[in-house]
Amino acid sequence: MSNTALNSFTKRRTQYSLGKQLPISQADAGALIQEAIRQAPSAFNSQSSRAVILFSAESVKFWELVKDALRPMVPAESFGATEKKLDSFAAGAGTVLFYEDQDVVKGLQQQFAAYADNFPIWSEHSTGIAQFAVWTALAEAGIGASLQHYNPVVDDAAQKEWDIPASWKLRAQMPFGSNEAPIGDKPFMDDAQRFRVFA
């Protein structure tokens, strides 16, 4: 089956071997990320997703903050492997920090009390869609990326470093950059275990 959207989805794969040479300008990459999030749907059109886009030294700084946060938590004899992994993320051209604005969530809970319990869940849907939209848009532009979750250990440090509003809750991090190694094939489980179709 030939489908433009599915072709783009197929390009979106995890890339751990990142470099700093983007195939597009930094300005265009930033605009691409913003537009992908802008176009991502959200429940009640809440637009609760927020992003901090870090390039170059600012991105490296973020991964140093992650190291500092993890160092007391990881046994010294194991930290070398952790540091190597974090350095691979810092080797890229940038990092997107994905946030959800809890003030938006609380406002919707107050406005639509009957759905109050669902808005935190729908907020998680929103950030997942935004992350997928950004990842796919980057892949379509020839930019490698992966999705990481070092929240909440780095939340406070990042909030202080970049003056992040207190209502923004960090949900994921996406290091991105040039593809410095081939991307492997993605394995799939058997369709019969995932899908049921009735007609």
Rank of each mutant, 00 (worst) to 15 (best):
I53H: 01
I53K: 07
I53L: 05
I53P: 08
L54H: 12
F55H: 14
F55T: 15
S56F: 12
S56N: 15
S56I: 10
S56K: 15
A57S: 13
A57H: 12
A57V: 11
E58I: 06
E58H: 15
E58Q: 15
S59T: 00
S59F: 06
S59W: 04
V60L: 04
K61P: 00
K61D: 12
K61S: 14
F62T: 14
W63G: 08
W63I: 03
W63M: 04
E64N: 13
E64R: 14
E64L: 07
E64Q: 14
L65P: 02
L65W: 01
L65H: 02
V66T: 01
K67F: 02
K67R: 12
K67N: 07
K67I: 07
D68A: 15
D68R: 14
A69Q: 02
A69T: 05
L70D: 01
L70Q: 09
L70G: 01
L70K: 05
R71V: 04
R71Q: 11
R71G: 08
R71I: 01
P72D: 00
P72C: 01
P72Y: 06
M73F: 07
M73C: 03
M73Y: 09
V74K: 00
V74A: 06
V74R: 02
V74C: 01
V74G: 00
V74N: 03
P75D: 05
P75H: 03
P75F: 00
P75V: 04
A76P: 06
A76T: 04
A76G: 03
S78W: 15
S78V: 11
S78G: 12
S78R: 14
S78K: 14
S78P: 12
F79G: 02
G80A: 14
G80P: 10
A81V: 10
A81H: 10
T82E: 01
T82V: 13
E83M: 08
K85G: 04
K85R: 13
L86M: 09
L86T: 00
L86I: 11
D87I: 06
D87A: 12
D87M: 07
D87T: 05
D87S: 13
S88T: 09
F89P: 09
F89C: 13
A90W: 13
A90K: 08
A90I: 06
A90D: 10
A91L: 04
A91G: 09
A91M: 11
G92C: 08
G92T: 02
G92M: 05
A93H: 12
A93Y: 10
A93W: 10
A93E: 05
G94C: 06
G94Y: 02
G94E: 01
T95G: 10
T95H: 12
V96T: 09
